[in-house]
Design a protein around this nucleic acid. Structure first.
Lengths: 221, 221, 221, 221
DNA sequence: CATGAATGAGTATTCATTCAT
DNA sequence: AATGAATGAATACTCATTCAT
C-alpha cells in the first residue's frame, strides 16, 4: 500500500490501514502546518478523531511521532528520486534535469503534506534533532546530483574541468529552491510559477536548465 | 541614527536611543537563539533589564515585537545590499557577483544574530506570519539581482536573450543558499565551506560565479 | 495450601493455585517496591503475564487488589506470631520476648516483600484506607503482647501492678519500631543495626529486653 | 509572627502575611491529608484560592513546596524540643520525661497539620527524598534523648551501665509512637487515649514513664 | 510611565478502568 | 473467560498577557 507506514509501536502497525491513514494524515497535517513545537497533540487527536490516550499508545512521545512522520517523508522522497534516476538513465543531461524537475513538481502535487514535512526537515531549526540529520540529507541530495553530473562528464556531455561536488551542491540547491517555490506558491503572484499554468512552468524549467547548461555570459566575449 | 528602529508603539520610539538599543539587542538575541516559539518574554525582559509590563507597552504582543525585529533585520540587509551595489557599480558582472558574495559572508560574520533572524524570516517554519511578507522579500531579492543583470546585459556583458526576471530569481536563490550554508556551517563537515578557511571560500565563490557565467556544458558541443 | 489467598472475586479464587500465586507474587512485588500510588497495573500485568482485562476481572479495582494483598500479608504475620507463641509457651518472659524479636528479624529476612507491604499498611502515608483497619491491627498487636504479659504476671514473673493493656501497647510499639528499623536499615549508618552483624543485633535485643524488664532507674535509688 | 515561614521564592516571602498563611495552610493541609504523591497542585490552588500560575511562581516545583513545608515543620518541632529542654533542665529524669510527653501532646493539639506533615516525613516512603533526611532526623531525635539520659546518669539518677545510645533510640521510639497514637487517635476506640480525657492521658503518661524507669520485672525476683 | 504579581488556557504525558471482540 | 485497544480525567508545569498599584 502506497501510504503504508512502518513506524510507531506494533500496536499502531496492527491498526486497520484506514485508521493508520487517518492518524497519519492528521499528524502530517498538524506538523506540516504548525511545525514541531507549535504542533499540538491535543489538536492532533481532535483532528484524527481518536482519544488522547491512543496517540500515546501508538507513538510513545510527540518526538517519536514526529521522527516517524519525517522518516516516512524522507523515504518517499528518496524512493521517488531513485525511480526517476532509473527512468532517465539513458537521457542526455539537460533532459535528465528537466525530467527531474518535472517529476519533482508532480511529487509535490501528489503529496503536498509530505512535501511540507520534508521541507520543514530541511530548514526549520524548530525540529527536535541536531544538525546531523540535516547535514546528511543535504549531502545525499548533493551526491545524487553529483552522480548525475559525473556520469554526464564521463560521457563527454559536460565540461571535464568542473568541480563535481561543489557544482552538485549548487545545482541541488537550485532545484530545491525551485521546488520549494513551487510548493509555497510564493512565485504565484508576481513571478508567476502558477501550478495550473503549464506554460509558466515550462518557461521556468527551460530557463533553469539553460542557465545550468550555458551560463549567462555573452557569447560574444 | 544607524541603529534606530522605526517600529513598536510611539511610546517605544520616544525612548532614549540607548534604551531602545538595549531592548532591541535583547530581543534579537532571544529570537535568534531560540526561534520564535521558544523565545521567552520572561527571559527577554530579564536580559533587557526592563519590566515585563514595559515590553508589552512598547510592543503590544510577542508577535508584534517579532515583526518589528524582523523588519529591522530586513532593513539592515537592504542597506547593506544598497551599499555594495553602489561600491561595485563599475565592475564587470562576474566581479560584481563575487563582491556580492564576499560582502555577504562578511555581513554574516559581523551580524550573526541579525542573520539568524533574517534567515528565520525566510524560512517559514516556526515564525508566525503568512506568506505575503516572504513573497515580498523574495521578490525584492530577485529584483536586486535582476537589476544587476539588466545593467550587465545592456553593457553587452551577458547574453541578451536571457529571461532577466527568472534568472534573477535563480541566481538570487543560489547566492542565498550559499550564504545560508555558510551561516549554518552545514557544509562544514563534508563539503567544506569552513568559515576560517579562505581557500575553501575562494573555491566556492569561483565555482559559483563560473557556473553562473559559463554553465556546465562541454565546450566541445 | 499455604500460599492460598482468600480474596478477590470468585473468579480469581477458582483459578489454578499456580496462576493465583503468579498474580499474587507480581502484585506483592509491585506494591512493595513502588508503594500504592506508584504501583502500576500495567507493569503488574506485564510481570504477572496476564492480560489487563483479567486483573480487573479478578479484583474489580486497584484498591481492591491492594486490600486483598494486604489482608494476605496480615494473615501471614499473624500466623507467624501464633507459631512463635506456641513454641515459646513454656519460656520465661524475657526469653519469650527475645525469641519474639529474633523470629521477627527472621521473618523479615525471609519475606522482605511481605514485610514491605505490611509496614506500608501500618503507616498511613500513601495507602488508601481509613484508620479502622489500622486501629484493628494495632489493637491485635497490643493484645498479643498483653496476653503474653498477663500470663507472665499470673506466673509471678512480672509486677502484678502493671497496667497490662497499656504496657502491652507500649512494648508492642517498641518491638515494632525495632523491627521496622531492622527492615529499613535506617539504623545502618550511625546506630548500627546492620543485618549481617549478629553481635550488633544481640546487643539491640539485649538492651531492649533489659529496658523492658528492669527500666533504667538507678538501683541505688 | 508564629507561623511565618522563611521559604519559597522572594516573591512568596514578600506576600502579605495573610496570603502567605492562606497558601501555607492550604499546602500543609493538602500534603498532610494526601501525602506527597497524592497531593495535587490543582486541588491545592483551589483550596488556597489562588491561580495555578501563582503557586509555581512562589515555589518553582511541587517538590520545592513540599521541601519548604517539611523544613518548616521540622524547625518548629526542633524549636519546641529545645524550649522544653531548657525549661526542664533542673527536673529529675522521670519528671522531664513526663513534661516532654505532655508538651508533645500540647504541640499536637496546637499544630495538628504540622504534626501530620512531620509524621509523614518520618515514615511515608512516599516522600520524595532519599533516606538520608530520615536517618538524620531519627538520629537527632535519639540524640536528644540520649543527652537527657546521659545527664541523668551523670547525676546518678539512672543506672550507670545502660547503653546510652541504644536506650536513647528506644525511648525516643516509645515517645514517638505514643505521640503518633495520640495524633492519629487510633487509640481512641479501644485503648482509650482520647484527647479530651485528661485522666486517660495521665494514665498513659504514668504507665510509660514507669515502664521506662522500673521495667516490668517482678520485684520479688 | 513603570512595575511585577496574578492569571488561566495551554502543554505533553500517564494510567486505572471499560468494553467490544 | 480472556483479551488489549480505547478512553479521558488527571497530572505538573509554562508563559504571554493583563492590570492594579
Amino acid at each position: 500500500m502506497d501510504e503504508s507506514f512502518d513506524a510507531g509501536t506494533e500496536l499502531f502497525r496492527n491498526l486497520s490501514p484506514e485508521k493508520q491513514e487517518k492518524v497519519f494524515q492528521a499528524a502530517v497535517s498538524e506538523f506540516a502546518s504548525k511545525g514541531y513545537r507549535n504542533a499540538s497533540m491535543n489538536s492532533l487527536v481532535r483532528t484524527a478523531g481518536i482519544s488522547k490516550g491512543s496517540i500515546f499508545q501508538y507513538f510513545k512521545t510527540k518526538r517519536n511521532l514526529f521522527d516517524a512522520i519525517l522518516e516516512m517523508a524522507v523515504q518517499r522522497v528518496k524512493q521517488h528520486l531513485k525511480q526517476v534516476r532509473g527512468e532517465t538513465e539513458e537521457l542526455p543531461f539537460p533532459e535528465r534535469l528537466e525530467k527531474l524537475l518535472r517529476s519533482g513538481f508532480q511529487f509535490i502535487d501528489r503529496h503536498p503534506l509530505l512535501t511540507a514535512v520534508y521541507f520543514q526537515l530541511l530548514q526549520s531549526g524548530d525540529a527536535p534533532f541536531g544538525s546531523e540529520r540535516l547535514i546528511q540529507l543535504r549531502r545525499q541530495g548533493s551526491e545524487f546530483l553529483s552522480d548525475l553530473i559525473e556520469r554526464a562528464v564521463s560521457r563527454g556531455e559536460l565540461r571535464s574541468d568542473i568541480d563535481i561536488h561543489r557544482v552538485g551542491f549548487l545545482i541541488n540547491s537550485l532545484l530545491e529552491t525551485l521546488l520549494r517555490a513551487y510548493y509555497t506558491e510564493f512565485l504565484d503572484s508576481g513571478l508567476g510559477l502558477y501550478k495550473g499554468d503549464s506554460k509558466e512552468l515550462d518557461l521556468w524549467i527551460k530557463t533553469t536548465v539553460d542557465l545550468i547548461n550555458f551560463g549567462i555570459r555573452s557569447n560574444a566575449e
